[in-house]
């Protein structure tokens, strides 16, 4: 019996591994090639653009130094400037390597440190914003009066440019003694509660009339109807909103660092870079921000997959 049980899974396991490999092969053939081609094209285009944009400056420099130059020398020089108009990819990679891997993560020169500062206000703003969005949606779905009174405000809140509102939030919160993380988290929240609220209003209204009638036949309370029907129905909408919300939370956190005169964070890095013409620094902060955004969205997508499976969704 026991040997049987131990032996039988093996072929199934092998079969599964075989299927996995076949799947991987298909993915490589199906997707990897086009992606690699496009990436290569972008990199080539980038190098060409770097030459084109940085050439004037470089020619000026050659002329001021009374130096003769060949085209080849010019090209190489445009890819190696200290403060180029557009840094070449390898310059950004080198800067990233230096500031991510070669620097202690507690140092103010470390991009990991700056990413963490931005990430912490992103996550704080995201958490509060998500909660606020859900609460608003619950209120709107359950009380018609709230829908009439709140929804116009929610929508008009997003028509005001965040760049105009961010300094005011910082000043007002600063006046009541709130500094550091809180104003940045608040600005993040201000952006991210919106998609959550709108998505959840739709999601909490997703149950069809029959599913609602069923709850009525059991004389279910509002709370029971919410918890056993509206909430599970809304989860696909929630996750779709969260993916947008986490990305704009990050945008909010970065934008919030500009008027706060923050010394740390990816936004502060970009601002400092632009003061001193450190384009390479700006670009590497930009790359760090995109990697961070992609990872955050990826984490939410993983959560979505997990919830999907827990809810027995059709694969």
């Amino acid at each position: 019996m026991t040997t049987d049980a131990q032996v039988t899974p093996a072929p199934a396991d092998a079969a599964q591994r075989g299927r996995l490999r076949a799947g991987l092969d298909r993915a490589v053939q199906g997707r990897a090639l086009p992606i690699a081609t496009v990436s290569l094209a972008i990199v080539l285009l980038w190098y060409a653009l770097a030459v084109w944009l940085n050439a004037d400056l470089q020619i000026n420099r050659f002329e001021r130094a009374d130096q003769s130059w060949t085209f080849g020398e010019l090209v190489l020089a445009t890819w190696a400037q200290d403060r180029p108009m557009l840094p070449a990819p390898h310059q950004i990679v080198a800067e990233l390597n230096k500031t991510v891997f070669q620097t202690g993560i507690t140092s103010v020169r470390s991009l990991v440190y700056h990413s963490w500062v931005t990430l912490s206000s992103t996550l704080a703003g995201f958490a509060i914003g998500t909660l606020l969005g859900i609460l608003l949606a619950v209120g709107i779905v359950h009380a018609r009066a709230l829908e009439k009174s709140l929804l116009p405000w929610i929508i008009s809140s997003q028509t005001v440019p965040i760049l105009a509102i961010a300094p005011m939030i910082v000043v007002v919160l600063g006046a009541i003694g709130l500094n550091g993380l809180i104003p940045k988290a608040v600005i993040s929240m201000y952006l991210c509660f919106f998609p959550v609220a709108i998505g959840m209003v739709k999601g909490l209204r997703a149950p069809d009339p029959l599913q609602m009638d069923l709850m009525r036949t059991y004389s279910a309370s509002r709370w029971q109807t919410f918890w056993m029907l509206r909430w599970p129905s809304s989860l696909p909408f929630l996750f779709a909103s969260l993916k947008v919300a986490i990305a704009i939370s990050l945008v909010g956190a970065i934008v919030a660092e500009l008027p706060t005169g923050a010394q740390a964070g990816l936004g502060a890095r970009m601002l400092a870079g632009s003061y001193y013409g450190q384009t390479i620094q700006i670009w590497s902060a930009l790359v760090a921000a995109s990697v961070l955004a992609a990872s955050l969205v990826g984490v939410v997508a993983l959560g979505e997959r997990w919830a999907h499976r827990r809810m027995g969704a059709q694969p």
Binding site: D213, L214, Y218, P232, G312
Partner: peptide
């Protein structure tokens, strides 16, 4: 009440669909 459509909740197993009124 049995509706024209089964109106089962797709995120619940058959057992937990049946126990829904009992939970309530």
């Amino acid at each position: 009440y049995v509706f024209q459509a089964a109106a089962l909740y797709p995120w619940r197993t058959i057992e937990r669909n049946v126990t829904l009124p009992l939970e309530i």
